[in-house]
Design a protein around this nucleic acid. Structure first.
Lengths: 198, 198, 198, 198
DNA sequence: AATGAATGAGCTTTCATTCAT
DNA sequence: GATGAATGAAAGCTCATTCAT
């Protein structure tokens, strides 16, 4: 990518980033089209390629940017070491809702990045994708698993919770208007359900 | 579609169906390409369009076919009314492994169909998709929920199990060789984990 | 072409010839499609290519055949030398109506052949096309032009009559049912109009 | 079609229009190929579809455009009411020669449009085609038919003249180089021939 | 810096032609 | 002899990418 992108007004940078995120998040790398990004954020086709060599480069940039921004927000949330796991897990989702203020499609995009398997970009995002995964798992490792660990299969239970949360988020984006409140409520309900079991 | 397709040798029919299923399952309707199907099953480009009006018609056929075949297999499994829910859920997955003998990508394709949102085909598969969902839910309704229902949030727990199973299947297909045994083992482990909690 | 075509039952030969004539006459060489011929006369695709190397060869055969048949009919009409030109011209059209009994689309096809300019077949039919033109012009040369020749520009007038007759025929084929009677009536009217002028 | 086509340099617009006219006029809607247009005017394939949704849309545009341009030129010729019919008819042909300066294939294309029967475009050009026919017939209705009307079948004679003129034009385009002068000379000769008869 | 016209490789679809039965 | 399934070159069309302005 062209470093001059950063000397654009922050406002325009974000307009472009959001346009790309929206289309990439919705359709994945391959089916995302330049024209749709142009329509989504009103920045001319030529400019995309002025700053980003090609679609691959654009994806690689926006994905890295999104992953880094997400990690930043996670750090800023200052989730304390020793927080109860379920509380922590909920806070992570709260954190994603905060990201939406600047980048509405970022939470969806994050899942899309993890799912992305197109060989043209899979390698390019491997590193930031892994770092993000590590950051997430670091946060989770700081949690107090005492309640959970009473159960021998607690790792499996954690996985199940994660998959459920992802599914709930996808459902939320599919509805005409994403309601962060309703989403967080659903997440809370599922977390509680598990908690009660233990 | 052209009804003459059914007068082809069953072997060839299945070769074509498998070719289409594989590519559609892996890449979704839009990104699936005719050329890849040609490569995948060695049947020429022209022949696809001899039997199926267009890509849309092909998808609609293979999706309906796959869904119907899956329902057939589910019926043949003769899952008895009153089976314990967790046992039943496992049997459903066993059933999918049986499908794989004829149509290796069908279990993956089934999930992909449910996810498919391309407006060009969404309507065409609405009906069989719904029927399959109903068939599945009918089977599940016959289960003995007594153990589960001790817990007030058992519906949420069921959802969580379903999402986990889907994720495990996706992981399995991503590995170089799909091992049904390992997959079923993983499923069993997750099911047991939940069971033990109750 | 394969000479064995002639050992087919005359009935089947004509069925194929009519099928080809119809489609070639309606759509011209290039836009005529094999499938339409199959539909038009119920003879399988493979058979066409069994007897005629390719579409070019088929066109070349059917065109030559049609032109020859037309010449034969013109000869059989025994138009006497010395017939008044206008009467003779009318008789030529009557003759075409006779052709229609066996080959309904032949009169239209004859005009289509003359118009055909596709480089792939133009050369192949050059000779029979020319012979047919000569045959026609020979017949016309035997006419009694005494009435006509009173006018110095009689050659131009003859051309004008010919173009009108062609146009009337095209109109006739465009109507849902070709009515030979109505057509011949129209031709007679136009001929008379010219006659009266002289 | 995309309205932005009109903001292209007039020169380029005409280059494209001429490319399309040439190929459509020569081969008709169906047999006209995009590649030939590309070759004919050096404008890339993609651009045609950037401005015109599809081949149908392109035909519809170029046909309408051509018909309108022809009507414009006919109006500019200021053919006076009361002109002798034969003189008027000649002036109409002179007018077509003027069109050729900008659009060399337009006169041929006009006849081709009238002949076009492909169901995919027949309806789309119905209206402008009819308007053009009306415009032409309006001009002709202003003519002084006194000489002609001495003959009871004058309507038939007019038809015959029209068909002859069309045929002469087709012949002219078939020759290696279209010579407007020779063409107009031929038209004049045929007109005179008829005139002398009356 | 910014635009969007312009390009051509690649995708879906058609159709003359071949070939196993 | 007869069929129609099968093929692949070419047609119509899309879309990432380039380039003149």
């Amino acid at each position: 990518m062209n470093e001059k992108f950063y000397s654009l007004k922050k406002e325009k940078q974000d307009k472009m980033i959001n346009g790309a995120m929206q289309i990439f998040a919705k359709y994945g790398y391959r089916h995302a089209s330049t024209d749709e990004m142009v329509r989504a954020c009103g920045v001319s086709k030529g400019l995309w390629f002025h700053y980003f060599e090609n679609k691959t480069g654009l994806y690689s940039f926006v994905a890295s940017y999104g992953l880094k921004y997400a990690m930043l927000e996670l750090n800023m949330a200052q989730i304390k070491s020793g927080t109860d796991y379920f509380e922590l897990r909920y806070k992570v989702e709260e954190c994603k809702m905060v990201m939406m203020e600047k980048y509405p499609y970022l939470p969806l995009f994050l899942y899309s990045i993890v799912r992305e398997e197109d060989p043209e970009v899979a390698d390019l995002i491997k590193e930031p994708r892994q770092k993000y995964a590590e950051a997430l798992s670091n946060i989770k490792m700081q949690a107090d698993y005492s309640t959970l660990m009473r159960h021998e299969d607690y790792l499996l239970l954690i996985d199940m919770l994660d998959y459920s949360i992802e599914a709930l988020m996808n459902d939320s984006y599919r509805s005409p208007v994403f309601s962060p409140e309703r989403y967080l409520m659903e997440v809370k309900k599922h977390i509680s359900a598990l908690q009660k079991l233990l």
